[in-house]
């Protein structure tokens, strides 16, 4: 019975992941390996970026028409924010589908999302990355790592640490069924600051982490150390988010640009 329950939980979480995220690793890898009929539009300089802005991300940029005449760094930062807001929305729906999450104290649900969403975003972003760049605009565009690096500081410093994390993370060769449980484990984390019902969340977390361990053993029988390696990634993600939060504050100041209200809520008093 216990094994059946564990398999059911893994399945429920995987189904919620497939249902709620518009992009996943399988889709991203199909595009990145050139197995789609139309390859993504490659953004590698100012000219290709402008073309992409007029077509692929017209909606995003259009929503802030005032940005039209702003510098490229500010426009890219704005696009990153739009994508983050959308993923936070998807993550919230995903979290609600994780058994037990919705019955938690509402304050604790807020806390878990506040601290978990960016770790989850960077874990999932790796699916859209290879060593040369990143899929954007639902996979219709590909922005090169070199172009992002060529931008003015501090915006140029924003993506490189995520690429470095992604290359190591992608080497673990997780699939979407593994990632679904990993993202659930990130969100249901008992040591976030300010949690009220720690015991309840720790129980949920233990359950999910145990299911993740069993799932990895079955799904990757040749990699016996995958589970401890993934636990280490949880710590790496926390560090990545701390650095990112500091950088965002710097960008906000130096670029005199605004932050989406949802992201403001998340970053405020975070670390």
């Amino acid at each position: 019975t216990q094994l059946a329950d564990q398999k059911t939980l893994a399945r429920q979480i995987y189904d919620a992941y497939l249902k709620n995220f518009s992009m996943n690793k399988a889709k991203a890898r199909t595009i990145l390996t050139g197995k789609t009929s139309t390859p993504p539009f490659v953004i590698h300089d100012m000219e290709t970026l402008q073309l992409a802005e007029q077509t692929l991300v017209a909606k995003m940029v259009g929503s802030a028409g005032a940005l039209k005449d702003r510098e490229v760094e500010v426009r890219i930062f704005h696009c990153c924010q739009c994508t983050s807001v959308e993923t936070v929305t998807e993550l919230t729906e995903f979290a609600k589908s994780v058994p037990g999450f919705s019955s938690l104290d509402l304050n604790d649900q807020v806390t878990l999302l506040k601290y978990g969403v960016y770790e989850a975003i960077f874990a999932m972003l790796a699916s859209c990355m290879n060593k040369d760049g990143l899929l954007v605009a639902y996979g219709s565009g590909f922005i090169t790592r070199e172009f992002l690096k060529s931008l003015r500081r501090p915006v140029s410093d924003m993506m490189e640490p995520k690429f470095q994390f992604a290359m190591k993370f992608n080497a673990l060769e997780l699939d979407d069924s593994d990632l679904a449980l990993f993202v659930a484990a990130i969100i249901c984390c008992g040591d976030r600051p300010g949690l009220v019902n720690v015991t309840h969340i720790e129980e949920m977390q233990e359950n999910i982490v145990h299911v993740l361990q069993l799932h990895l053993l079955a799904n990757h029988p040749d990699d016996t150390f995958l589970f401890p390696k993934l636990l280490q990634k949880l710590a790496d993600l926390r560090e990545l988010v701390t650095e990112h939060a500091q950088l965002v504050q710097e960008i906000k100041k130096t670029e005199d640009t605004s932050l989406h209200p949802l992201l403001q809520e998340i970053y405020r008093d975070m670390y």
């Binding site: 739009c82 929305t89 509402l106 649900q109 209200p261 008093d269």
Partner: peptide, 21 residues
């Protein structure tokens, strides 16, 4: 906490499209 995180709170209570945010 809920007061300081109105949008997150709202997302948790209903399905809100990011377009509406």
């Amino acid at each position: 906490l809920k007061e300081k995180h109105k949008i997150l709170h709202q997302l948790l209570q209903n399905s809100t499209s990011p377009v509406d945010l």
